[in-house]
Design a protein around this nucleic acid. Structure first.
Length: 530
RNA sequence: GUCCCUGUAGCUCAGUGGAUAGAGCGCUUCCCUGCGGAGGAAGAGGCCAGAGGUUCAAAUCCUCUCAGGGACACCA
């Protein structure tokens, strides 16, 4: 349990049962460590001056808190209650970090199985930057949810058959000049390259464009896997084939289920699903008038399979171009009985080069791929940069800056803090935590500030697990790095009197532990030197 | 036309209805190489797009307007 949670428990004892309130980290310019606005909330129901209420609660907290937990609790301004932690409390948290090590920041908040689906881009070509954005988000969100106690499965749903794949097959034939070119075909160099390499095979399959497309899609999926797993270090547990959903009868099964539950109907020669019953703006076709199941129906079959495999919670991350898909897939999740179904939509990335907008289009073939970007700036920089920004923000990625001046990237600032911490220990030849140390020796503003920042780590995990705001982690990394650089500049470890040296050594080890935990969640390396 | 996202410092972006709106980059000044300076300190720079409203309290919630991005297939 983090410090904030402990304070929350204490405050809850001092206010009427069921009162909604929050405890937050105090503003930077305040001297207090944490604060609550509960007195303002109570002022409404009790019809009293918030300051008066705050004073009552503050003294009650003083009586009910464990001895020595707070340095002091005081009322400030119009009715804020400010908490000042004792050095003893901070010291305990420091010892907890040293004791739990890798497990520090592991919570028991979410006790459920979650299926997390992300990227799921068509294997008809390389990934775009938007795919990569969703990929990093999904990967790190998975890490966060696991830290928060959930069992997480990460899945890539592969659209390895159907019209887009047929289109790919035709694009390849057109690239070889076997059929006439068309506006709608994929145009990228990768199509031509693949076609040139497989000219003999194409000759034998020229009557079967779908099978050809499926064959090429298999290769492109292989390339995607290399880019995603090897280069970008995004982890998946499962690649689910759409084709398999068809062949294993799940499509028929889900169709029968829709019929049985009365959500499907016939019209205009096709079969429809009544998604408008769940807030969609129109009903959706699930079987075409030619009798073919649509992608949407297959995806419903995929959702059914997920449910049958024991998942009641599903999180699906979609790119900006699939926003229109949200309402209908949520309708399916409702019909199938998922307890929780969340769809996160990331916003687009605009790529800027030399101050100019670079137009990206997969079909026309002019784009900088996700893989190229990772190759260019490295996985650490790409991950950190993407993850600093909230997913709903329309992001401008300055390629010129990323390529030419990547050392300006905040990731170096953060990693350098870690290198410095590690180096102190290396120079002092310290391998283990001092057997005993006196936390009261950590008394300077820099010492205290660093401990406070370290103690926030579990709170950041908790917040991110609650609102899926993964960018909290990178922001926190910057704050922690700042606290450490500040400590490093002002205070010394080696050369201090032994009791201070030991206490600071413990503090530096704790800093390394938190950085390592943080880096592993964000998915960046913990470098030995820079 | 309908729907979604966004509008905060020169730039890129944070900011769970609360106290004096923050960070990085860029700019000015200082520390001058010490446990690796890819660092630290200080400063300049804001009608939080605009107008109404709700509230003890609004960058944050609601309505409208303006601006930018995106989505509106029997494609995915």
């Amino acid at each position: 349990m983090g410090i904030r949670s402990k304070i929350t428990v204490i405050v809850a004892k001092a206010v009427p049962k069921g009162t909604a309130f929050d405890v937050r980290v105090a503003e930077e310019h305040q001297e207090a460590h944490y604060a609550t606005t509960v007195a303002f909330q109570l002022a409404k129901t009790e019809k009293k001056n918030p300051r008066e209420i705050a004073a009552r609660i503050a003294s009650d907290i003083g009586a009910k808190a464990p001895r020595g937990f707070f340095e002091k609790v005081e009322v400030a301004g119009p009715g804020f209650i400010n908490f000042f932690l004792s050095n003893e409390t901070l010291g305990k948290e420091l010892k907890q970090i040293l004791g739990e090590k890798r497990k520090y920041g592991t919570l028991k908040l979410l006790k459920k199985k979650i299926q997390l689906e992300f990227i799921s881009a068509n294997p008809t070509g390389p990934l775009t930057l938007a795919n990569g954005r969703g990929g990093f988000l999904g990967d790190v969100l998975g890490n966060v949810l696991q830290r928060a106690g959930a069992k997480v499965e990460r899945e890539y749903y592969v659209n390895d058959t159907g019209n887009q794949v047929l289109n790919l097959g035709k694009s390849i034939l057109a690239a070889r000049g076997i059929i006439p070119d068309s506006e709608e075909y994929y145009k990228g160099d990768y199509v031509k390259e693949w076609a040139d390499k497989h000219s003999a095979l194409i000759e034998t399959m020229k009557e079967k464009p779908l099978a050809l497309g499926e064959r090429a899609a298999k290769d492109f999926l292989g390339l995607i896997k290399i880019a995603v797993e090897k280069k970008a270090k995004i982890e998946f547990n499962r690649f689910t084939s759409e084709k398999r959903i068809h062949t294993t009868g799940l499509v028929k099964k889900v169709l029968a289920l829709f019929k049985k539950k009365g959500f499907s109907f016939e019209g205009e020669g096709a079969m429809w699903l009544k998604t408008t019953a769940f807030g969609d703006d129109k009903d959706r076709v699930i079987v075409t008038k030619e009798g073919n199941p649509t992608y949407f129906l297959a995806d419903a079959g995929h959702y059914l399979e997920t449910k049958q495999r024991g998942f009641d919670t599903k999180i699906n991350i979609l790119g900006p171009d699939h926003y229109g898909y949200v309402a209908r897939i949520q309708a399916v999740a409702k019909i199938l009985g998922f307890k929780e179904s969340t769809v996160l939509v990331t916003q687009a990335i605009r790529l800027m080069e030399q101050g100019e907008l670079v137009k990206m289009s997969k079909r026309k073939g002019k784009f900088v791929t996700f893989e190229e970007l990772v190759d260019e700036v490295g996985a650490d920089v790409a991950r950190f940069f993407f993850l600093m920004i909230a997913p709903e923000t329309h992001m401008d990625f300055d390629l010129t800056l990323a390529k030419e001046r990547s050392q300006k990237n905040p990731v170096y600032y953060v990693q350098y803090a870690y290198v410095r911490a590690k180096n102190i220990l290396t120079k002092m030849k310290i391998k283990t935590i001092p057997k005993s140390f006196n936390v009261t020796k950590l008394s300077t503003a820099q010492d205290i500030n660093l401990i406070r920042e370290l103690a926030r780590f579990p709170e950041i995990i908790e917040d991110a697990a609650r609102d899926y705001g993964v960018h909290r982690l990178t922001r926190y990394a910057l704050n922690l790095a700042k606290a450490f650089h500040n400590f490093y500049e002002v205070e010394r470890v080696a050369g201090e009197e032994k009791t201070i040296k030991d206490a600071r050594t413990a503090l530096v080890i704790a800093t390394c532990i938190v950085f390592e935990n943080l880096f592993s969640i964000i998915g960046i390396t913990a470098p030995k030197k820079m």
